[in-house]
Design a protein around this nucleic acid. Structure first.
Lengths: 156, 156
DNA sequence: TAAGTAAATTAGTTATATCTAACAATTTTA
DNA sequence: TAAAATTGTTAGATATAACTAATTTACTTA
């Protein structure tokens, strides 16, 4: 854990973790499909991840995560899930867009800020009296603001 | 506006816009200082921005924004401001970290999602009765959750 | 088991973005 | 106004991350 890896490699790791959870291992081809990159790009990424001891990678063999890789990918997935949850459930962003944004954010939002998103989401959800009221009112508020909206702190 | 430019070039444009607002123009050296890159990197970026008609750039002369560049940078700054505001005022993230995150988010958060952040922030702020209560309770909620926190949707 | 096919890898290319080092233009100052 | 300092540019190197094209490996089946 706490290896300094690029956003790109983190994405590969995340996909490998997801495939591993489903199938027990990951294949180069499936990774390429899921990430919509060429197989040759996957090979290069795998070499790098293996170099960092995040995966066990032998040519032409299925890929599995090392302990380090597991911990690392869990962190990433934790961030992804919770950022996405905030975006969909509270801001009302649609699933696909939320996934997309979460995927990008997970690479530079640290644990602390992620936890703030988590706490925030939980907080709203923990007020059952307020949750639906909150959502309805917010949606209304959002719709009314469209088109007339200017930058909030533009008052200088 | 709506030019497809890289995150890096958007950052250069943003800094140029800020310097222009302060001084009426931007100098290569000041851009380098503000962005903490070498002057030679700035030169390369300037050539690219000029190529895209976002700035007026003549060797050894101060840099100014074109109309297109102004509109483009305003969009970026709008996003930055409002994402940051949400992070500091509602999530309680500190200024520097919020700036950092906003700077990265502004490149892939579209207008719609930014407006949702704006509406959300306004919404909470428009309930004066709730704002302070909300903040205190949230902060408490956040602190209590530290250390014991696990992933929200981990129940499968 | 030899041939054919699918999967995976290698090698080489491109594009972006940074750097260092050397050089050119401009400004300051002695 | 000539020398020194600052500012800005060019050229060349490095790193990441993708691509295409060609090759190698593994599997299947006739």
């Amino acid at each position: 854990m706490n290896v300094e890896i690029s956003a790109s490699l983190e994405n590969y790791l995340e996909v490998i973790a997801k495939l591993s959870k489903e199938d027990g291992y990951a294949l180069s081809n499936d990774i390429a499909d899921k990430m919509e990159v060429k197989r040759s790009s996957v090979t290069v990424a795998l070499r790098n991840l293996a170099e960092l001891d995040l995966i066990i990678y032998k040519k032409y063999k299925p890929i599995t995560l090392t302990e380090k890789g597991k911990k690392c990918s869990e962190q990433i997935i934790y961030k992804h899930k919770n950022i996405k949850l905030f975006l969909t459930d509270l801001l009302g962003v649609n699933e696909d867009k939320a996934d997309d944004i979460a995927c990008k954010m997970e690479h530079f939002i640290g644990k602390e800020v992620t936890d703030r998103f988590v706490a925030f989401t939980k907080y709203i959800k923990s007020c059952p009296k307020n949750e639906q009221v909150w959502k309805d009112k917010f949606e209304e508020f959002y719709r009314e603001g469209i088109d007339t909206r200017v930058c909030i702190s533009n008052k200088k």
